[in-house]
Design a protein around this nucleic acid. Structure first.
Lengths: 199, 199
DNA sequence: CGCGACGTTGATTTGCCTCAACGATTGTGG
DNA sequence: CCACAATCGTTGAGGCAAATCAACGTCGCG
């Protein structure tokens, strides 16, 4: 039995789905039943390295980061995911393997979650969702590839500027240290870049 | 009407599909009908920047590279794709948009190609292929993410060494200039790294 | 209040690039 | 089949982008 609150959150899910394919009320209803809302407080883990990523997350409000620790303990941020975007570790979620990544909340964050089993159930009930999630994975791939190319073909300053464009919706909510870690540069150097640009 | 030669090539396609899901003879037959073989000579373009990528390519033999040109004319290689692996520009293929990428052949290369329309037809005839291609896209995403993290968390020397491991099947067929471009370092510096390691 | 995260600035070091020159190899047209 | 061009790999000298280490001020929070 779902609460009214859940119903409220799932409302924010449909616009995403319908940007790919229109849904019937029945399809919306199925989705609403199979997603569960959850609140993560700032700094709380959504996924820890070594655990299996059992949830596919849709961010209703707030912001998550995904990162990997290297052998020296430095963190490397692979993703910032804020409102109306999706996040999971595909390898762990799909293959039920222990994850190499961590996910935590940079702000208090409300997500809608679906387990892999429930996602398969959703596919079975309404094959249309296969198209939708295939399109979702594709767009994740495309943006990752864009980021890789951007990184390879420019210096830190240009990468920072194009980050500001691509992440204009959340850039001012992110601490500089986090942005530096995402860009793969030191916080000190990012600080110098900013000053240089504002002169 | 398909030739015996085509039949021969498509044989190499089934093992890939069946590593995800077992196929019936009918499903194999449908796939064989909808894929077309094509030979690209060394240096020949498979896709040129600005064109729409209408084919999804499965490499039967040989090796392709995908790359992007930056404003200075430097090339940045995003992929090396050899035997039994897949290559397309998803954004262009799916969205029918002009591509930002180039694909060409590093060796004489035989590919099996399917257009997006035929792929949709294949999905319609046998929905099982949706699962298979979804799994394919996922694994593309996963390996791209691994590469990004590897790149961010290590220096050029370690990146080179892990490239050799990850690409051990084709590393010795690739010119050093190409490998340098893939790693995002200059050919001169790669040369110095190699000498350093072999001392 | 006091501690820890954050941002800034300076001095120094270093990883990697650029430019240039040079052999070796491949390939190609006459 | 040879001659010449193009591509490839190597090596040296010099320069720059970015890291590192260290010190310090500010702010938010328990």
């Amino acid at each position: 039995m779902k609460t009214d609150t859940n119903q409220l959150y799932t409302e924010s899910l449909y616009p995403y789905f319908e940007s790919v394919l229109a849904l019937t009320d029945e399809e919306k209803q199925s989705a609403a039943e199979l997603f569960n809302p959850r609140l993560y407080k700032k700094k709380q883990y959504v996924l820890q390295e070594g655990a299996i990523c059992i949830q596919f997350n849709f961010v209703v409000s707030g912001c998550l980061r995904m990162y990997k620790l290297d052998e020296k303990g430095n963190i490397h941020i692979t993703q910032f995911i804020a409102e109306n975007r999706w996040l999971t570790d595909f390898e762990s979620y799909h293959g039920k393997k222990p994850s190499e990544f961590n996910i935590d909340a940079l702000e208090d964050t409300i997500v809608l979650q679906i387990t892999n089993d429930n996602l398969q159930l959703l596919y079975k009930r309404h094959p249309k969702f296969k198209q939708i999630f295939m399109s979702l994975i594709e767009s994740c791939y495309v943006s990752l590839q864009k980021r890789l190319v951007q990184n390879m073909s420019s210096n830190a300053e240009q990468n920072y500027l194009s980050f500001l464009q691509a992440y204009s919706h959340i850039a001012d909510r992110l601490p500089q240290t986090q942005i530096a870690s995402f860009l793969g540069i030191s916080p000190e150097f990012l600080s110098r870049l900013k000053n240089k640009n504002s002169e």
